[in-house]
Amino acid sequence: MNGVHDMGGMQGMGAIDIEPNEPSFHDDWEQRMFGLFLSMFAGGHYNIDEFRHGIERMGGPNYMATTYYEHWVSGMQTMLIEKGILTAEEINGRMSELAGGNS
């Protein structure tokens, strides 16, 4: 499917932002997201192509406005819901509980 992810040859994206001595992850949630992705992949709940296609369907403006691991969060949620592993209600409900408990 054509889409904003098909970036080869696009112009006007600006300079390349090179970070010296970059760490593997920039935040704890990125680490957890990486581990979740790999664990569920290893568990056979989706393959990498399905997961990538989940990301490609997140919508152009959203794709451009978010970072790499935020793409993964979106792809992961799409996979989990479409595979019937979790529902959107469960996820939203748990987020509300966690927000209430933490703040």
Binding site: A65, V73, L86, I91, R94
Partner: peptide, 23 residues
């Protein structure tokens, strides 16, 4: 958008925590 990640939306952090706890 800046691709050098520093501040995620609070929503993203919560969502990842929610997914991990549910799974």
């Amino acid at each position: 958008a800046s691709y050098k990640h520093t501040a995620a939306l609070p929503d993203t952090v919560l969502r990842v925590k929610a997914l991990e706890s549910l799974l």
